[in-house]
Design a protein around this nucleic acid. Structure first.
Lengths: 345, 345
DNA sequence: CTGAAAGCGCTTACAG
DNA sequence: CTGAAAGCGCTTACAG
């Protein structure tokens, strides 16, 4: 059976297509009894408007896209992405948008995808994940196209761009402040890769905090990881010769790796080395110890990104909207807070 | 500036819209020099066809959807989903399809989403994840609508449905065969929740294997987990009183939990209890021991699902396509293979 | 090989 | 409040 068209409903309800359209789209200016009659027919027949026709006529697709650039190879391993995706999907459901996902796997993918996302007719707007220097290219192309765009994360050049970011600098600061406040003297950090803005910001927060506490920064206490558990493990081993009494790991995954390295070395967390992570995403309870960490609201972040994008779509892209979200210090055992409080009591 | 239309290209190239359309869509029957001329204009102007207009005229959207039903609360924690998503996204890129993701979070979501995905105009076809009894409703609705549908996983009623599944029964059998072949006598299992077809199939494989090896099944050696690490940990503790010498965990996550419980009890893997998991997804190296497991090709699975769906779209939905993918036993240390071989040598 | 024309199924001024 | 009509930007028989 062919699908029902607006016309069929109009005929059955004894009105014009215009009227049915008004009812479907909740426009005012329809007499109550007529509206009711049309709604009944729609109900009865299970009519639903054809999305393509509606998009073509109204120039609105009610679809938004999420573009994950090439450098996001960690899509599977980093819990950030499922959470972000969930937040976006939830908000799309709420605001009646459809959610299209574009995973850019190669330069060719980018060339295929770019015209699809930037040209009107498919998407009303796009969210693009930022974070690596190499991704700036597609972000700029998007920003220079006509399509409303919000960047998730910190773009390296942010003039005239709408973006939403987590305050990674302040977040890292909170983590290190916490350690410094507990009296640790040799606070190291396992930071992320240099090409990532998230890493740069968290490392920056680390430096600011130490400076404020009057510690000089010992560069041998800064080791680079790659946001993964094995990366954290390896970084921790490089840290041992510098004898840290506490370590701020720029992600929970790396914190996990650090804990493993510490224990394998026959040492204890937090007694020998205290650990603070970053993320507060649900982790395997494998640690056997609560991880003190910085909570970032990733699901909410995704929802907010959608709300900003809808604002851009409906109210124009100028002025750029720029939103920074706060983080929260979550104190658990791995930083040794209770132990030290007792000691100093 | 307004976006370019087919008409603009036609004018600039001095041909009709029909001809431009033929060039854009790679139709034959265009003289080579004309084709070249049109392509040059397209190249120069950066023209790209409007997706909605094309969809409306051709009745093909070149978009497919993935529907994750309500019961998939594990979207973030289970690495299965990012991998599946990646496979689907990759295949979509390859075949020039756009990928729309529908995360059903509630009954209301389902009511909003169903007309969108089942009505032509937005999607050409949909992949729906199966696996829990409660999801059968939306699967049946999809199957009874006009939209080409392939089920990922095993639907509880599969007549006239196209689906793609992993051979969970044989996979589990391989795992338990491996343990039985190594001479373990009291092989337990941590299975998944009863409402899941994956659990049911893997438990079934466990029973078949034991039967083939002439072991009687001791029901106290079967404990239910929930596919998470803490679930595996708790299940292992319930297993101790029955003194298993080996355990088949129906997921790597649960295997991780089991290992943690075993070690906390002061026992060793595999010396006191051997462990085999299921998935072979990249895991935190936290274990410190290689996990023997059953590899399921999830990314390929996602790609195949797309290929089947495209086949359905292009060649009709009858007869239903039903594909079962094989698994592979990956032997590492946790099952004690080498130790026992030495012993028996 | 090429073009004129109808049509895909909606929305939206416009007129009443 | 309602309807007739134009138009959104393509594709696709059809005629030549």
């Amino acid at each position: 059976m062919p699908e029902l068209r607006l016309e069929d409903i109009a005929k059955q309800a004894g009105v014009s297509r215009s009227t049915v359209s008004r009812v479907v789209n909740d426009h005012p200016n329809v007499k109550e009894d007529v509206r009711k009659r049309v709604q009944d027919v729609i109900q009865l027949t299970g009519y639903h408007p054809n999305a393509a026709a509606r998009t073509l006529a109204s120039q609105r697709s009610w679809t938004i896209g999420l573009v994950l650039p090439q450098s996001i190879s960690s899509f599977f391993t980093d819990p950030y992405f499922p959470h972000l995706t969930k937040g976006i999907a939830q908000a799309c459901n709420q605001y009646d948008y459809t959610f299209a996902l574009f995973l850019v796997g190669s330069k060719e993918d980018e060339e295929k995808i770019f015209p699809r996302v930037s040209r009107k007719g498919l998407l009303d707007g796009v969210i693009v994940q930022a974070g690596n220097r190499g991704d700036q290219g597609i972000i700029n192309r998007l920003a220079n196209s006509n399509i409303p765009t919000v960047v998730a994360g910190r773009p390296f050049h942010s003039e005239n761009l709408s973006f939403i970011n987590v305050d990674n600098v302040k977040g890292a600061q909170k983590a290190v402040d916490h350690l410094a406040g507990l009296g640790y003297k040799r606070i190291g950090t396992i930071c992320g890769p240099a090409h990532s803005s998230v890493s740069a910001d968290r490392l920056n927060g680390y430096r600011i905090s130490l400076a404020e506490y009057g510690h000089t920064v010992d560069e041998s206490l800064i080791v680079e990881g790659d946001f993964t558990e094995p990366g954290g493990y390896a970084a921790m081993q490089k840290l041992f010769p510098s004898h840290p009494d506490a370590v701020f790991a720029a992600s929970d995954m790396m914190a996990l790796g650090a804990v493993r390295a510490i224990r394998e070395a026959g040492l204890k967390v937090p007694d020998d080395v205290a650990i603070v992570g970053f993320d507060d995403l649900p982790l395997p309870a494998h640690l056997g110890i609560g991880l003190t960490t910085i909570r970032q609201p990733v699901v909410t972040f995704g929802e907010k990104a959608v709300e900003i994008l809808i604002d851009l779509i409906e109210n124009g892209i100028y002025p750029p909207r720029q939103v920074i979200m706060n983080t929260e210090l979550i104190i658990r055992e791995s930083s040794g807070a209770s132990r030290i409080e007792k000691t100093s009591a």
